[in-house]
């Protein structure tokens, strides 16, 4: 299948997943509420007179995104478990790379949707001076989300075929999230502190390199994770 055909098929799969999610909204709402709760709980987990909220915020943001993201990722293959939907998808004349790409795109929309609500909530609760940092911050969020989703989608597919299912996903995925969360949190901290953009460039390069390598690698190995 040609590259445009692959993308078109992937978009159809993504639209299907998002349509299911939009009708129930169950995973999106739970991920959203989880991240809002985490933001609130983290605030009270530290002594605000010792550590300022603006210092805490980047860490809170990324820990929250990581864990709420896992909630949506697990669901992405969970919906295919019912009525042998996954088998139907595999039997369909669709390249397996397109299945991966479609699932990943739907997950990306999911994660970015959660971020779009919880980042303003964080700025509000922690009284953050987002202001001029908004655009580079959005770039960091998108770059990190792409990496998290590529890894997360692959391992969600792997974990769905095991006895442990949702228990296994964090064990497999979290070590791989480290080179995403660390640069993202460091870049966020510098942007929120009003430091020049040049100081975050090294971190952004790590994020871009990770995205390129792992998006490619996950798409290539994904077909191997499925039974013939």
């Amino acid at each position: 299948m040609s590259a445009p055909g692959l993308v078109a098929t992937a978009l159809r799969i993504a639209r299907k997943d998002l349509a299911i999610e939009f009708r129930t909204r169950s995973a999106f709402l739970s991920a959203l509420v989880l991240s809002l709760l985490a933001i609130v709980i983290f605030y009270f987990a530290w002594d605000p007179t010792a550590v300022g909220p603006a210092v805490l915020a980047p860490g809170v943001l990324w820990v929250t995104f990581t864990f709420s993201g896992l909630l949506g990722l697990h669901r992405s293959f969970g919906v295919e478990a019912e009525d042998g939907a996954m088998d139907a998808l595999l039997v369909a004349p669709v390249p397996r790379e397109a299945i991966f790409l479609g699932k990943a795109l739907a997950n990306l929309a999911f994660v970015l949707g959660v971020q779009a609500v919880s980042l303003p909530a964080l700025a509000l609760f922690y009284n953050l001076p987002v202001g001029s940092a908004a655009v580079p911050l959005a770039a960091v969020l998108v770059l990190a989300a792409v990496g998290l989703v590529a890894i997360g989608t692959l391992f969600a597919g792997v974990a769905a075929n095991t006895r442990l299912a949702e228990l296994l996903l964090p064990v497999l995925a979290l070590p791989f999230f480290v080179p995403v969360v660390m640069p993202a949190a460091q870049a966020t901290a510098r942007l929120l502190a009003g430091r020049p953009l040049a100081e975050t460039m090294d971190w952004l390069r790590v994020l871009i390199a990770f995205d390129l390598v792992f998006c490619w690698a996950c798409m290539v190995v994904f077909p191997h994770t499925l039974d013939d």
Binding site: I151, F176, V213, V221
Partner: peptide
């Protein structure tokens, strides 16, 4: 295989 790919990234970010 993915674990082997991860090693340079962890090293770089740390």
């Amino acid at each position: 295989i993915l674990g082997a790919l991860l090693i340079p990234f962890i090293h770089l970010s740390v």
